[in-house]
Structure formats: structure tokens, C-alpha cells
Simulated assay, not measured.
Amino acid sequence: MIRSARSSARSTRGRPPWWVLALFLAPALLLYSLFIVYPLVSALQYSLFTWQGTRPLGFAGLDNFTRLFSGVYGDRLWRAFGHNMVFFAGTMLVQTTFGLAFAVLLRRARWGRRFLQTAYVLPHLVSPIVVGYLWSLMLSPQFGAVNAALRAVGLDALAQPWTGDPALALPTLILVNAWQWIGFPMLLFSAALAGIPPEYEEAARVDGATAWRAFRHVTLPLLTPAIGIVTVLTFVGNMNILDLVYAMQGSQGAPAGATDVLGLLFYRTAFNNPDPGAIGQASALAVVMFLFIFGVSILATGYLRRKEAGLR
């Protein structure tokens, strides 16, 4: 008892006072409030007023939200929302599948591991704007390297207008997006695999399980926390995507709106809209996007935490 009291007193003496903690946290809290909290509160305020250019005219209540979901604007909103969901599902499928596969293969590699990890992560470090413009050049039907390579090996029938065909444009953007970000889940899965004791899989193999069954029933469930992090962050990033689509398809989501997403719709509403009340409508769209993304992220995080707790 005396020892516990002494250790408690020692830990209390080693802890800095509250004002020191507050002093170190103040800069981060100030920046967060300035660049995150203030814009969110401002968007909510702007969405409740009617505007004449940049001048508020009066309280509008929920009129901006009503206009957001009605008429032609509502049709564009739901179409862009559907594209975002397809974008998320496709990116999640490609980058998670290949990211996990690369992490498993690199874990078993005996040479070149660091080089390959660096090669896979490098696109993640490049700006999406730069990635978009580079892939636009490579996918050009006239002088692009992709079609030129296909024709060089005799696969002329596979040479397509990748970003000009409405049926191919969105899948092409999904593949480009997954290519850029595949290094992120690969690193997370590599770290998670390194934290799993090899004895678990060895015990399953001793019991007669094949390599696939051992991975499916032992290793994969233990990767649930990493899969949850990748899922939530991919959802947030793809629901807010703008730069890559803008660089490759322009502000209208060409061709014929086949790649229009919520980020582009917000951009056009705020900056390319002749309506004098554009600020109110754009702010209403920003509020709806935030509430949806935040709500789904909270629900998904809670569900994944319960799944993770069930593994203990």
C-alpha cells in the first residue's frame, strides 16, 4: 500500500501542470478552430440566408436546402451523389484488394522490399492535380502512351477514348485514383501484418489448414482495425474528391456529366453560377455534404470498433 501511494505521488509529480498542457495544445486548437470550425459554422450561417452576390439580404430558413433537392438542381445532386458512391466503392475494391495483396507479398519477399514499398508509395506523395494532368496526357486518344503501347503490341481493338467515352470515363478515373492511393492501405496493412504473431498462422497450418484458409480465418479477421481505418478514410476522401476529377475532366464532369461529383457541383454552384443567391445554395450543399460524411463516418467507426472488440 505504501509502495502504491509512493508510485502514485511520483507519477503525479512527473505530470506537467494543466496550464503547461494547455499552452502546448493552444496553437493546434487555434489553427483547428480557424481553418475547420470557423468555416463550418460560417457555411451553416450562410446557408440560412438569401444573398445578392456577396451581400446577405435576409433570413431564408431552409429555402436554400429546399432548392437544393428540387427541380433540375436536385437531379444533378443525386446524379453527382451516385457517382461519388460508385467512386468510393470502386476505389475501395481496387486499392484494398491490391494493397492487401502487395502487403502480403512484400512481407514474404526476401529482397527488394524497401524499393518496392517506396515505388508503391511515391504516387501517394504527388499532388492529385499533377497526377490528373499526367494521366490525361497518357490516356489521350491521339498521342497518349497507353493507346500507343496497345497498338505497338497488336492490341488495336483495346485502344479506347478512355476519358471521352461516358461508359469508360468514370471507371478510368477510379483506376487512376486507386493507382495513386494504393500505397496508403499497403503501408497500413504491412504494419498490421507485422503486429500479428506468426505463431497464429503456424498453429493453423499445423492443424491442417491450407495457406488460404489460414489467411482467411486467422490473419484476415485480425486485420479488421486496419481495414476499418482504410474504409473510413477512403470514404471521406472519395466523397470530397474534386482535384483529380477537375484535372482530368474539367469543372463540368465531362463527358456529358458522366464524371460529375459533389465537389464539382459545389464548385460550379459557388463560382460558375449566374444565380445571385449562389452563396446560399453552395453553403447549403456544403452543410449537407458535411452532415452526411460525418454521420456515416461516425456510424462506420462505431460498427468497426464493435467488430474489433469481438476479436479480443
Rank of each mutant, 00 (worst) to 15 (best):
L222T: 05
L25D: 02
A256E: 14
F88N: 04
A203H: 13
Q252T: 15
L291W: 08
L244W: 05
A109N: 14
G58S: 10
V130A: 14
T118D: 00
G253H: 03
A282L: 08
W51G: 01
L299E: 07
L44Y: 12
A119P: 02
L242K: 03
R312N: 11
V236W: 05
P255W: 02
T172L: 00
A191Y: 11
G280R: 05
S251M: 11
P39W: 05
L29I: 14
A148C: 05
G302Y: 01
A119T: 12
L100R: 05
I36F: 13
Q249F: 04
A101S: 13
P171F: 03
H124G: 03
F35Q: 09
Y267E: 09
R306I: 08
S7C: 09
A204K: 06
L57G: 09
R110P: 01
T259S: 10
I182W: 01
R114T: 15
D275K: 04
L170H: 00
F69D: 05
G257V: 06
W18D: 14
D156T: 09
T219W: 03
S70C: 07
L31F: 14
F98K: 00
L62G: 08
D165T: 02
D165E: 11
V287Q: 03
A178R: 01
A145W: 15
W162E: 03
A159G: 07
W181F: 14
V37H: 04
L222F: 06
I229V: 15
Y133S: 12
Q117M: 13
K307D: 04
V236A: 00
V245Q: 02
D260H: 12
W111F: 15
A157N: 01
P171C: 07
L137N: 11
W111I: 12
A119M: 14
W181Y: 12
A103P: 12
A167Y: 04
L175C: 11
Q52G: 06
L222Q: 15
L265K: 04
A169Y: 02
R10P: 00
A148Y: 12
F143V: 13
Q160M: 11
V218K: 03
A103N: 07
A178W: 01
F35I: 10
G257A: 04
Y133W: 10
L116E: 07
R268V: 11
A211F: 09
R13K: 12
I182D: 01
T163C: 13
S70G: 10
D156K: 09
F87Y: 09
T66C: 13
G154C: 05
A256N: 14
F143Q: 14
P274Q: 08
L29H: 13
A5R: 11
I196C: 10
V245S: 01
R216Y: 09
A5G: 12
V230D: 00
G208I: 10
T231P: 01
M186Q: 09
Q117C: 09
L242D: 02
V176K: 02
A300N: 05
